[in-house]
Design a protein around this nucleic acid. Structure first.
Lengths: 333, 333
DNA sequence: CTTATCACTCTCACCCTGAGAGTGCTAAAT
DNA sequence: ATTTAGCACTCTCAGGGTGAGAGTGATAAG
């Protein structure tokens, strides 16, 4: 579809627009790409690119600005830059440092990413659903309240408080714990949840079964859909977009857990760039660059940034990937 | 210091400015207050108020605008309004509804408050330090990792994972649990922490003592300084302030846990209104209305909103207090 | 102490204008 | 068929001038 020179012109135009934020004239394109033609030729090319819907003019006698389709083409054809040594070093030293807890690591990672990229950054933690359960314990907190603690193969600990309808005896709890452990230990949460349903009434008293069911329900429910979200750098929004209405829109996006998850995309795809309406959320001037990271047995998470459509994609993609890789290494895959 | 009429004039001026956002003229003051004088008199009064530093003029031939001092005087002398029935009902029904967990209740409360007030809302959860410990349990998660679960008299559950330097036996853990329970149960965390130091070596083996020390340290550390923060409605910032620089500043304030805590003030004072620089954070156009709530044995928390200095204080104060009271009731004080 | 009056000041929206930037078109050149 | 030079045309934007309107401060009288 696009001729060689057309492609070069589009690329130069997008990069120039990203750099200056001003409509790009035919002369400016000429000065920033290596083709040896006159500005009149570039004008003809631009007219063609415009007819294809890659660029547009704010008004008749202005330069050209990329459309979302133009950005799309650019993003699909550009290759990430190299990072400055200082930036690389920063990422590297961050991940070689010591981190205690997963949740703290992820929180700090969102801070790092936002700091380096100058965009608000988001990290979605790995789920727990596919992790093998290594241990399951019941703690009698008092009267009819018990706590269930699950330990994953990775060492991750989950806990949930369960309120029963009656007051179980210590013996009943021990029995319930045995049954639950038998089903869950060595299995994933979802498999364990399925297995528990097959426990027949003749293996245990009615009361014990009730305990087992309640606890199993709580355990499975806890980890479904609780992939935690860490957001940092939201204040950058105000320096990235030019008008309050847009900042408002972006704040609203970041405020809803659900939309943030949708922004990053829960698919298993690697690095992705989604431009405005492509997110199926709203048609606004923004883009999300994100990538998946592998947390070993814990499953997969995602990390990314949110910025205006006019951003340095080559740099941003590289940063996000670099941080994703760092995270992956740090989680000892 | 302020004559009766001066006070009335100032009050009318502030309220009119809050309503319109425009500099208020002497005639406008006249129309909105009950004094029976001419506009020329009001002008003289305004000149006096200006000399006292309560109001100021954007330019020589404009109306007056309140200064921070003017707001201060107003806030100190106004009484909260009554709320519309719909609003009252909304708050009431929210708190009579069922809430499972403390953290969820507080999170939702910040949402409610922000929704009703149309300002970003913040809730600081009560500490745990003064709550009586009712139960303390150790769970052996595997190898040298144990989890300690504390149950407060209020039913609140805290947990912490502790990594030991060695692998304890089941018997050693039981013994440690016994010692810990003896010190902590029936006492506050801080008292328990103190008591545990008096346990002598001749009462237990060295290994058991090490476990006890590690666990006690973790338990005490967990609850010191982890009064959780819940923020909602940050997106409202973009509709409340007029320019991006201010929105940026406010976002930065809300982004730092530390500054948010300072905004609300950790003092035990009841309802407070802090205007811009009074927070000792930055001198900007904002105000924080907050109030303390009593969470019974759990201690005290704070709830409040952040808005521009030009806000409807009478309504906002009432809303914040109402929500604070609701929270207090709901926590069963 | 309060009031009526009036001159004075300042802002704001409006219009006009000229400079500048950049295009599209046309006709010639390769 | 593509590229180029030249030129007329369009559109924006900043600057300056203008008049209406709002509001004040001062003054002098009640």
């Amino acid at each position: 579809m696009l001729d060689d020179r057309h492609s070069i012109v589009l690329q130069a135009l997008v990069e120039e627009y990203i750099r200056t934020g001003q409509p790009v004239s035919s002369r400016a394109v000429l000065e920033h790409c290596s083709v040896d033609v006159s500005s009149a030729t570039i004008r003809n090319d631009l007219a063609k690119l415009e007819s294809y819907g890659f660029v547009t003019q704010p008004h008749t006698s202005a330069g050209r600005v990329p459309t979302p389709n133009g950005y799309r083409y650019y993003v699909d054809h550009c290759s990430p830059t190299k990072l400055r040594n200082a930036t690389r070093a920063r990422i590297e030293s961050f991940f070689t440092g010591v981190h205690e807890e997963l949740s703290k690591l992820l929180k700090q990672t969102s801070g790092l990413l936002s700091d380096i990229s100058h965009f608000p950054a988001v990290v979605i933690g790995p789920g727990f659903g596919d992790e093998i359960v290594q241990g399951l314990h019941l703690v009698h907190l008092g009267a009819s309240v018990i706590m269930v603690v699950t330990v994953g193969a990775s060492g991750r600990v989950g806990q949930e408080v369960v309120q029963l309808r009656f007051q179980p005896t210590g013996k009943e709890l021990d029995e319930a714990e045995g049954l639950l452990a038998a089903c869950f230990e060595g299995a994933t949460l979802s498999d364990g949840g399925a297995a528990i349903l097959t426990v027949k009434a003749d293996h245990a008293s009615d009361r014990v079964l009730k305990v087992v069911r309640s606890v199993a329900g709580a355990v499975v429910a806890t980890e479904t859909g609780t992939r935690e979200l860490y957001i940092d750098g939201a204040s950058q929004l105000a320096s990235l977009w030019e008008d309050l209405a847009q900042v408002h829109t972006m704040l609203q996006l970041l405020e809803k857990d659900k939309s943030v998850r949708q922004l990053l995309g829960d698919e298993d795809e690697g690095t992705s760039v989604r431009l405005g309406a492509e997110t199926d959320l709203i048609d606004a001037d923004f883009a999300v660059v994100s990538t998946a990271f592998n947390a070993g047995i814990r499953g997969r998470g995602r990390v990314g940034v949110l910025g205006p459509m006019r951003m340095d994609y080559r740099r941003t993609i590289r940063i996000v990937e670099e941080v994703g890789d760092g995270l992956e290494d740090s989680l000892g895959v």
